[in-house]
Amino acid sequence: MTAIVPSQAAPAWRRVAAQAAFETRTILRNGEQLLVTIALPLFLLVGLARTSIFELDTAGATRIDFATPGVIAVAVMSTAFTSQAIATAFDRRNGVLRLLATTPLGRGGLLAGKVLGVLAVEVVQAVVISVVALGLGWRPHAAGIPAALGAGLLGTAAFTALALLIAGVLRAEGVLAVANLVLVLLIAGGGVLVPPDRLPGPLADLATWLPSGALGEAMRGALLGGGVPVLSIVVLALWTAAFGWSAARLFRWQ
């Protein structure tokens, strides 16, 4: 008979780092996820910069300078919202969330690992998009990069909270449909690629108050050199609080 050594958990940072690495690998290996997080933004970037399929009022900027901040905002939305909502919904359905909650990782560690995983995928996206955009002649306003990082973090918080809200409430198949549909609608009319004030009619007012419009405006403000509008930050912060509060209350682990 072997003596039992009291079992101990690995240090918290190592558990969270392991979970973040695991989440990142899983997303980057999944073909459908790559389509939404990498292929879609690149397609939009090249389409907007190199073709005239989309009418773009750039207010004097080059097409690539104008389009890239919006594409980065789309990338944030695709990872923090669509990809994360789908991954979490299926993990929830398959009992993964319950099982990991019984390991030393716990629910808090699982959440932290997911958020770090999202940020890691976003770093990959930012590098890929920036390299392609620079190759296409993108000249970002360098002084605005820290502000863009801040806007990206706030946008990530808002959209991850929304992802967890729908993933924790709807059935997995429902999440699959909603997460993709909402992304398409927000790209088309949510003020992310085209500024809210250039959208037709009531959509202009609506998009200003949507998290997508706020994130797009913040990114353009930072990287085009016009400065981040305070309203965008306020709107993103309010959505983060609202989605986060709702997710914390309504999320069902099983």
Partner: peptide, 27 residues
């Protein structure tokens, strides 16, 4: 804990899952 419905992440490989869970423990 071994759950009735398994609770294993479906997109990951078998050994990868086991290694991952093992990383939650000190020894």
């Amino acid at each position: 804990v071994m759950l009735q419905d398994g609770g294993l992440p479906s997109g990951a490989r078998a050994l990868e899952v086991l290694r991952h869970v093992s990383e939650m423990y000190a020894s």
